[in-house]
Nucleic acid binder design. Structure first.
Lengths: 236, 236
DNA sequence: AGGAAAACTATACGGCGTGCAGTTTTCATA
DNA sequence: TATGAAAACTGCACGCCGTATAGTTTTCCT
């Protein structure tokens, strides 16, 4: 009885998963714009309208994809961070940042989906997994900042940041994990993030191509300088 | 005779200008996705196909708009730079960066058009005014870096950058203007740009909203830290 | 005045998201 | 096990889009 009840649900879950899988494949081969309900349905041998049984609207589907992709990014950088030696801030930063750039280069469409203007007219909803993943990313960076803070504090302790300057949802994740960290360190983490994001974003969108022929060298220089600017002297 | 010859050309130029104007208005009110030939034609009381007499394709029109908008951005930051005191690197940087962020906040759709993925399926062409404007932006930043270089050199002179690491078209503009500048300074300028771009891009696309409630404070902190990291001690 | 060229319209095709009505399949219950 | 509701799905339609082709009107040079 319970098994027959579960059958429809199982089929439903499988179909949902297939829709998402096909959508990601379409995105990988044709960019975010290739995510169309009709193309997905064509690929699956269905009618476009059948998808409305699983996602209320195309933007709903895109939101789900963003959530998935963003979560995968957050997992990738977190895994890189964890696999680096714990007491070596420079190595941690390099691992984290390298994983971020590698993920973006491996998955440029995913990067565009998450950080760009993924689909015509799409506007991100308020809640969902994406802000969560963003918080995970930022929390990971805060971990980097926390490990570097003993070195960096004298240089960054100024700046009149207060807890009220940050999103409460982010602080809920950050403050329990790093109780001793001041607001300035969270600001530092955000700024480190923006540095990495800026460079990778320019590279992914091709705006660096008209300037430099070796974005990787630029990225490495950025990391070197970042680590030095944090006052980290140990070798990673 | 010459005047009658010029008449059609004048009308043509006016129509071309109106198409661009209407397109920019549509973009300002409805985002880059609102730039559709049919909407423009509707607004102008024409048929959509009439536009094909002025632009070979929709992407051609978008390219022209990007060129215009990018050029306006380049002009805005350059004007800000020029209006700041010449011997005060900190003030110059603050003026330039502030103008960049202000332009982006005032004209977010333009920012998306220039730095994002402006229109479904659009791929930027190789040449045109956009790379020129990008070079102007980078040259402006190189001017900042050049003014700061006397302070910054000891910290940034390392990094094994060579002239071959950069785009020749960019160097053609940069090297004549700053003959004594080493490649490391150009790399520094690019990195400064990526910092500013990263922060502003996150803010424009709303990815900062899930983290901080005061992006401006973050931006100011970034500038303060940037100026300090360049070794500039004078007050601007 | 006449003819070429330019500007523009009309029509059509295929693609898109999506609403609505109808049909088939699935499954709990009487 | 027959039945009726709910779920899954199809078909059709509408209005949007870019754009190709063909035909029409306007403009200008000779």
């Amino acid at each position: 009885m319970g098994s027959t009840t579960g059958r429809r649900e199982r089929l439903r879950a499988e179909t949902t998963a297939e829709i998402k899988k096909v959508a990601l494949e379409l995105m990988a081969s044709g960019g975010p714009d290739a995510i169309t309900l009709r193309a997905i349905a064509r690929e699956m041998g269905m009618t476009a309208n059948a998808i409305y049984g699983y996602f209320a609207t195309r933007d709903d589907l895109v939101t789900t994809l963003i959530d998935n992709v963003y979560t995968s990014l957050a997992g990738a950088v977190q895994a890189a961070w964890e696999s680096a030696p714990a007491l070596d801030p420079a190595a941690r930063i390099q691992a984290w940042a390298g994983a971020f750039r590698n993920w973006a280069l491996t998955n440029p469409e995913g990067f565009r989906l998450v950080y760009g203007d993924p689909v015509p007219g799409y506007r991100p909803p308020a809640g969902g997994a994406a802000p969560d993943a963003a918080h995970r990313v930022c929390t990971g960076l805060t971990a980097l900042a926390a490990e570097a803070w003993p070195y960096a504090e004298p240089r960054y302790a100024d700046g009149d940041f207060e807890w009220s300057d940050f999103d409460p949802g982010l602080l809920d994740k950050v403050r329990p994990a790093f109780p001793d960290l001041p607001p300035a360190a969270v600001a530092l983490a955000l700024r480190i993030w923006s540095h990495l994001h800026g460079l990778v974003s320019l590279e992914i969108y091709g705006h660096l191509r008209t300037q430099t022929l070796s974005p990787e060298k630029l990225f490495r220089a950025e990391l070197t300088q970042l680590i030095r600017s944090l006052g980290i002297t140990a070798q990673g």
